[in-house]
Structures are given as structure tokens and as C-alpha cells.
Amino acid sequence: MPPVDNRIFMDHERVLNTHDANSDMASSSEPWSVEKYCERIRVEIVNETSDGMELEFDLIGVEAPIANALRRVLLAEVPTMAIEKIYMYQNTSLIQDEVLSHRLGLLPIRVDPRKFAFPLTKTIGINESGVDCDSEPPGDPKYNVIFELKVKCTKNPTAPKDATEPKDVFINSSVYSSEFTWCPIGDQETELLPHPAMVHDDILVAKLRPGQEIEARCHCVKGLGRDHAKFSPVCTATYRLLPIIKIKEEIKGEAAHLFQKSFSDGVIAINVNSNGEEVAVVQDARRDLCSRNVLIHEELASKVELSRQRDHFMFSVESSGALRSSDLVVEACKVLEEKTRDLRRLVSSVIR
């Protein structure tokens, strides 16, 4: 059987060779095996920030459905902790209770969700009048993390007479996420290290003026992004195929500069050959965004071949702050593994 070209070719207005022969078992003359399939899978770390919140890696040797499954699990099925119930004792700000509660619920929290269990019952019961319970429950250290927000705006007695900025004239004119105080439950003081906190201290929650105040206690629970976006563990989780740029014919002089401008910055470089002529060369194809602008120029279109590697996925993952991006990828793989086990059990129960 002749080797299959594993590239997707990009024409001016078409994309060719999109059929995924690797995932078509009927097209292979050899029996498919899990062991051989896993042998060709590789993961290469490209870049990771010092704080671990951003990660770039290449997933090589898999098909698009598997890469997309990893991306979707990262977005929606890796659990995190988020504010679920808010007990509003005082809110005299201009923001309505329900709008303020929604804003608080979206604040990212730095706490390891693996140390908690999913809530098995409703966080709050409803009384016979259809109203939430009259008093705040104490919380359970296995299920909850509790934060308290208590801030009041007053006039600044030491403010200069000519001051006009609210931050100078008033005290606590702006309420930031740094105002939240963690309230340990049970043995959480020693069990949760480092202590839970807001991921960012500079998120603006509300603005107050003298006499206005906010007092609330926020109960966090473990949840999934598929239930609510506030539980999504990533800011972004994306992938794209590895670009391949093949120069079929030497491009010199002004054409080389035009060729360079047709791609994203850093993709094409201009070198000087042995004859002293400027020649275009591929410097870093990974930077190419596949705009195909070069194909607009008739004099250049025939000299270049644009394609993408079908089984080479360049992932970019940015954590929202609960866990490092690398930990999130590992947790996503565990979720995928459990899904495959469940599917295998279901199939086995049917075919017996």
C-alpha cells in the first residue's frame, strides 16, 4: 500500500486532502492495535511561563477528534471551585444584589479542587414559603470554602482640600477582590496549603460612596464548566495544526521582500546567497497564521506550497489560576481515560 501524504494542502480558495486516512480502519491492510497506535503519540513542551499559568505544547500522532476531545474536556470537564451561594447581609451600593452576586461568582479562586468532593445535595434548601433558608449554614470542610467580604466607604479626613479623585477623597471608594477574607472551616487551616485566596487582587468588584457598604459571606463549591462557565479552569484552550511552508523555487530580490510581507512576522527571513543576492528562506513556520496572502500574488503562488501537518496539533492552554496549566492537562487526560473506561464497560455489557 503506498504511503499516505499526511498533509492538508492549502490552495487559494480550497483546502485539499482533508480526508483523514489514519482514522479510517478499512483503508489499512494491517490489523489495528492500541500498542502500535500509542507508540507514535508524542507530547513536546514548547513553552511554559514561570508561574505555570500558560503552557504551549505539541500533541503529535493523534487525529482531530482526540485533540478536540482534550480541548473540550479542558474547557468543560476539569473541576474547579467557584462561589455558588452568597449570603448578603448588607448591600447599599448602586449594584443590585443579584448583579453583584453574579460578579462575585465569576471571580477565579486559587484553591486545589482535588481536595474537595462534589456537592451531593442542593447547597441550600428552600422552606415551605419557597424562600431560601433563613440563616447561613456553617459549611462543610469537605465541600465548601468560605470567603467574607466586609467593606464600608467613608470620607477621608486627611484628604487634601483640592483633591478630586474618589480614591483620595474617600476611603474604600473602590472594592477590589483583595478585600475578601478566607474563613477556614474545621481543619482547613492546616489541610489547605497554600491557603485559599482570590487569584487576582486587583479585580474591581464595585464602587462605593460614603455611607454605602457591602457585607456578604460567599460559599464556594466544586463544579464543572459544562454546568456554568464560572467553573471552567482555563481562560483559553486552543489548538491549531502545524503549518508547513515549502519554497519550490528560489525567490530573490524585491520578490523576496514581497514574499516576506505576505506572511506573519518572523515566518520568512531574507538571507544573502553566495552571489550577493537577497533570497527568501523559511525562518519559523510555526508563526504562520495561514492567511494564504502569498497566493494572491500570481508571480509567487507557483513558487510556494502551503500545507498543514494533519496529526501535529499545537496547543495553547492558559489557566484561570486554580491549578497550573500542566496540571490541568494531566487532569483532562485522567477524565478522558475514565470516559473510555466507562464506554468500554457499556460496550462489554451489551455484547455479552
Rank of each mutant, 00 (worst) to 15 (best):
A237Q: 07
P141T: 02
C183T: 12
A163L: 03
S29C: 04
K152H: 12
I351H: 09
E331F: 14
S28I: 05
L258N: 14
D227R: 08
D112S: 06
F180Y: 05
D342Y: 08
M25Q: 05
V78I: 03
L242E: 10
T92E: 01
C133P: 00
T340F: 15
P160R: 00
S28Q: 08
L59W: 07
I214E: 01
E56T: 12
V78R: 01
G276V: 05
V175W: 04
H228R: 13
N273S: 07
M1E: 03
R72G: 03
Q260Y: 00
L328D: 06
S274Q: 11
S325G: 10
L300A: 09
T158S: 15
A285M: 02
V234F: 08
T121L: 06
K152L: 03
G52D: 11
S302E: 13
E254D: 15
H219M: 12
E189N: 11
A82G: 10
M53I: 02
A26H: 06
H102Y: 06
L75F: 15
E84L: 01
I8S: 11
S129A: 14
I66F: 15
K150N: 13
F57N: 03
V347Y: 10
R344W: 05
R345S: 10
A269I: 01
N6L: 13
E338C: 09
G186Y: 09
S27E: 09
V46G: 04
D342T: 14
R292A: 03
V335E: 08
S326F: 07
I109A: 07
L75N: 01
G321R: 02
F180T: 03
L208F: 04
D288I: 01
E277A: 10
L208P: 12
I66W: 08
S178L: 09
L149A: 03
T190Y: 12
T236S: 15
Q212N: 08
I41L: 13
I8P: 14
L94A: 15
H195V: 06
T238G: 12
V62S: 08
C220T: 05
V282D: 02
S316N: 13
I185L: 15
I251T: 13
N275C: 06
S178P: 12
P113N: 02
H12A: 11
D134N: 04
M53F: 10
N6T: 14
L16T: 10
H102T: 09
P243K: 03
A301N: 06
